[in-house]
Design a protein around this nucleic acid. Structure first.
Length: 644
DNA sequence: TTAATCAGCGCGTAC
DNA sequence: GTACGTGCTGATTAA
């Protein structure tokens, strides 16, 4: 089993950026500094507390009485693993006031645990009580399998901190150190270090697990009080209460539903890929004159650039290896027939190892479906992310890649998939935020925006735009969304930096409002230290005044990109909340199952399609009205590709 | 000494 | 611009 603390450990090391302006407290997370700080942190050993075990039905009833009298209670689940859709409940902890908490152990016998939870149910069901927790999606999912479906309102400390400090980390241990100067009992002290044969919560002695679990509920409740007082001054209350908190149970539902996969189809595809890979592999060995590991960039680089010498001044990577990325190989594809074979090999290998062979292994034995995990507190812009597996990067671009989308199917023959996606949402948001007349007109007239842009920057009538011109214009529009640099654009469409700059200059002449808006975004970041989305989601940009031009440039592109990408995220989140509410209020048997940034996928009961399709379209279109039209493309199909 | 594990990196997928 | 996963590789840790 993996360490349970992974449940809350979301950020990669590389993502840690510590630029806390106010008090500098947050700089204590470099490992050595952490050791120094440890001495000053309070712990369970030097902090007064009363943590009680409730292990009889009478004692549990007493707990419920206390919960029902409270305005809010905090709860936490202890489980046998980190996969909420496939683990067992080991115990629950509750807190209603600081330094006091109860722990209720749950036996391995499912029915006995069900009985315990039935006693607790009135507290969970009561909509007059605020339920507090840390990463509550996990707990709600676990409880779902025990027939407990807690009613809101909710307060998730992880999400509260996410709206306050989106770039920081949000796990409980971190929050406890920063906001309470407290270091909680580590999970490792209970179940051992991560790497080796880590133990199981089920096997931890009651007295130990009680202290750990009760402390979690206690600390989380204390954090709630700190964080809730910080929300108003950060202008984050509305975002928290009207978007992130209501979205949390929606994501819980989506994860629980999961999506069905056509395993036979994938297995056949895997055999096809294997055959093709085998022959490509042998062709490569023939052309190279020797066998080597094609999947090793290092070995491949040596073959291409030292043995075959297909380039006399090969590009190098950060670590001085030969660069063999797709863009590099693409440029060399005329030099030697091996290059195209390598590109083919790469594509097929990627599909096979990342998707075709992996997805079937991710099927949950309990449900027979795939349950991704949406992370609601990881991106600095407000987007969601998806892991285990990541269902937000399923291929769509290439012919063979699209085969994988065909394997996403409805749950049973009574169902059909519905996919709805926003058309050009980020460009529309720029048009809205900037007020640029020309771009607004293009959307109001319903033009193909890339063709319209091409017509403008190449000064030709829109009907005479060539495919090449449209392609270039599309890249420029993409670049605009990302906070364009001449370098980035030149890389993208394979022209010189100078030519790219000319195109950008012309773009800004044609869309002057866009240029002004970008300058304004950067100015705002300089003045206030942050930029924000339509819903007031902030992104702090401490590097905006950096003396380092690279860092400053990066911050400036973020100042442009964050409100755009983030406002699109706000919009689809609002749509998701509204759609989910309507589907459930009407007791429909159709379900939202996937979100891919600008797209929602539903598993729809065929008999309900007449209701669901217009509902989805309406709710997405009007989630966050803009000064220009919002368009939603919507389709149905027997698989995700067909519906797309 | 050897085997297992970890972490960083190159790469490639999505929007 | 925002993410996540896989495989390779060299370094570190455990047996």
């Amino acid at each position: 089993l993996k360490a349970l603390f992974n449940e809350l450990e979301f950020r990669t090391l590389a993502k840690r950026v510590f630029n806390e302006p106010e008090d500098g407290q947050l700089t204590l997370f470099e490992e050595p500094a952490e050791e120094v700080e440890k001495a000053e942190l309070r712990t369970i050993r030097n902090t007064q507390h009363e943590y009680l075990v409730a292990d009889t039905s009478d004692k549990i009833k007493e707990v419920v009485e206390q919960l029902l009298q409270a305005q809010e209670f905090c709860f936490d689940t202890e489980t046998t693993g980190t996969d909420a859709n496939n683990c067992e409940l080991v115990g629950l902890s509750f807190a209603v006031k600081p330094h006091h908490a109860w722990y209720i152990p749950c036996p391995p016998d499912y029915n006995q645990t069900l009985e315990i939870l039935q006693i607790l149910k009135p507290a969970f069901d009561n909509p007059g009580i605020l339920k507090v927790g840390q990463n509550m999606k996990f707990d709600l999912t676990v409880l779902h399998y025990y027939d407990i479906h807690p009613a809101g309102p909710f307060f998730d400390t992880m999400l509260a901190h996410y709206v306050l400090e989106p770039e920081q980390r949000h796990n409980m241990d971190y929050l406890a150190r920063v906001y309470l100067n407290y270091e909680p009992v580590s999970i490792e002290s209970l179940i051992g270090q991560k790497g080796g044969r880590q133990g199981n919560m089920r096997d931890v002695e009651l007295s130990l697990i009680k202290e750990y679990a009760a402390e979690d509920a206690d600390i989380t409740l204390q954090l709630k009080h700190k964080l809730s007082s910080l929300l108003p001054e950060a202008g984050a209350e509305k975002l928290f209460n009207e978007i992130e908190m209501p979205l949390m149970p929606v994501l819980t539902s989506m994860e629980i539903q999961g999506v069905k996969i056509d395993v036979e189809n994938l297995q056949q595809f895997s055999r096809d890929l294997e055959k093709d890979l085998f022959s490509i592999e042998n062709e490569i060995y023939q052309l190279a004159g020797e066998r080597f590991n094609i999947a090793s960039p290092r070995q491949l680089g040596i073959i291409l650039f030292e043995k075959l010498k297909i380039d006399d001044k090969p590009k190098l990577t950060a670590t001085k290896q030969y660069a063999t990325g797709e863009d590099v190989l693409e440029k060399l594809s005329g030099r030697h027939p091996i290059v195209e074979k390598i590109l083919d090999y790469r594509e097929l290998m990627k599909l096979k190892s990342t998707y075709v062979d992996t997805l079937p292994q991710m099927i949950n034995p309990r449900t027979g479906r795939i349950h991704t995990s949406y992370n609601q507190a990881v991106t600095s812009t407000g987007r969601l992310s998806s892991t285990n597996p990541n269902l937000q990067n399923i291929p769509v671009r290439t012919e063979r890649g699209r085969e994988i989308r065909k394997a996403f199917i409805p749950r049973n023959p009574d169902y059909i998939l519905l996919a709805a996606d926003y058309s050009q949402i980020e460009l529309r948001i720029i048009a809205h935020l900037s007020g640029d007349q020309a771009m607004q007109d293009a959307f109001r007239f319903g033009f193909d925006i890339h063709a319209a842009t091409a017509a403008k920057i190449f000064k030709v009538p829109i009907e005479e735009v060539t495919r090449e011109q449209r392609r270039a214009a599309k890249s420029v529009n993409f670049g605009i969304v990302y906070g364009i640099s001449a370098f980035g654009l030149s890389q993208n469409i394979g022209i010189s930096k100078k030519e790219a700059q000319l195109i950008i200059d012309e773009y800004f002449r044609q869309y002057p409002g866009i240029k002004t808006y970008m300058e304004k975004s950067i100015a705002t970041a300089r003045e206030r230290g942050y930029v924000e989305t339509i819903m007031g989601r902030r992104r702090y940009l401490p590097d905006i005044n950096s003396v380092n031009a690279n860092m400053r440039g990066f911050a400036e592109r973020n100042a442009i990109n964050a409100p755009i990408q983030g406002s699109a995220a706000d919009m689809i989140k609002i749509a998701m909340i509204n759609i989910h509410r309507e589907l459930r209020n009407r007791n429909l048997n159709s379900w939202m199952v996937l979100q891919v940034h600008d797209e929602l996928v539903f598993d729809v009961k065929r008999t309900e399609m007449d209701v669901v399709k217009p509902l989805v379209k309406e709710m997405m279109t009007n989630a966050l009205p803009l000064s220009i039209p919002v368009e939603v493309d919507i389709n149905t199909g027997e698989n995700w590709l067909e519906a797309h």
